[in-house]
Design a protein around this nucleic acid. Structure first.
Lengths: 151, 151
DNA sequence: CGGTAATATTTCGACATCGAACTATACGAT
DNA sequence: ATCGTATAGTTCGATGTCGAAATATTACCG
């Protein structure tokens, strides 16, 4: 688009795609944030609660793997969730290194209160794309997200 | 995909697309980070430098608009860039509220040192998609990123 | 058994990020 | 000119985010 960069055709195409992908994700997320469907919890906190809700109690490390965040980050986010009474930590009896994270009743209630509106917001945002366009986007994202098997 | 959530067909499709889009972007960015093509600057700093490089000197607010970040965030990122001598702040003579941000020589050099490797990394990452797939992805992202004109 | 390696989590320091409150400056209407 | 509003940046407090180093605990190996 409007840069004074002179690259090969492939480079320009890739750059253009990358920029549009990045901007798309960014602006989609800011629009979702503006809707305020999450109430008083943060997106990160919601991601953790949702994972626990859909997949059940997990190790702290497993939660991090699910939401694609680092271990130290999990410590922080789960600290805040615990402080606010949405999750409970429980040390494993056998292997005392691991910590199991459970939703509390308040946590479960929070997810159930938020989920419908959250999904409705997503459906509305994605309604600019037809069903087949959405599937096409999903397929392309899946491919790109996986990356090259090797290296 | 694998949740015990029972929504309508449209909801499931949207959710699936949203998850794949999110994961795609996340893992793409972590792979790019792992490649370490940016050296000692952060992605946010690179975004600012690149904007200044391609579009020329801008107001601090304009930079924020380009990289889609808040004003207070721009203060922080530009503070760090200024501290490291990559950009220079200059108060406007006529309207003393505004600050113009310029690349220094070091800043320009930094961009030029980074750009080729960065682009090469992008091209390689995106090579899992054919040219037409990339264009298709770009088009879908553009549509989704823009959102509904109204509302 | 004892020592080394691996694993799970926490701590720490740096950076990013936001919104709200604040400061300084400009502008418009009277 | 002046008052009120709008605009550009900054400051502040909270949260998220990472990687490296530290801690605690378990596993493995000779």
């Amino acid at each position: 688009m409007p840069t004074h960069f002179n690259g090969s055709r492939a480079e320009m195409r890739t750059l253009d795609t990358f920029i549009k992908l990045t901007r798309c994700t960014n602006s989609l997320f800011s629009r979702l944030t503006e809707r305020n469907t999450l109430g008083d919890i943060t997106p990160s906190q919601f991601a953790v609660l949702e994972a626990l809700y859909h997949l059940g109690s997990m190790t702290q490390g497993e939660v991090g793997a699910k939401v694609l965040k680092s271990g130290s980050n999990m410590t922080t986010v789960i600290d805040n969730l615990e402080r606010d009474g949405r999750v409970r930590r429980e040390r494993d009896a056998k292997d005392r290194r691991v910590i199991h994270v459970h939703l509390t009743e308040a946590g479960t209630g929070k997810v159930e209160a938020i989920l419908p509106g959250h999904i409705a917001a997503l459906v509305e945002e994605f309604s600019v794309l037809s069903a087949s366009e959405q599937q096409s986007l999903a397929g392309l994202c899946k491919k790109l997200g996986k990356g090259k098997a090797s290296k």
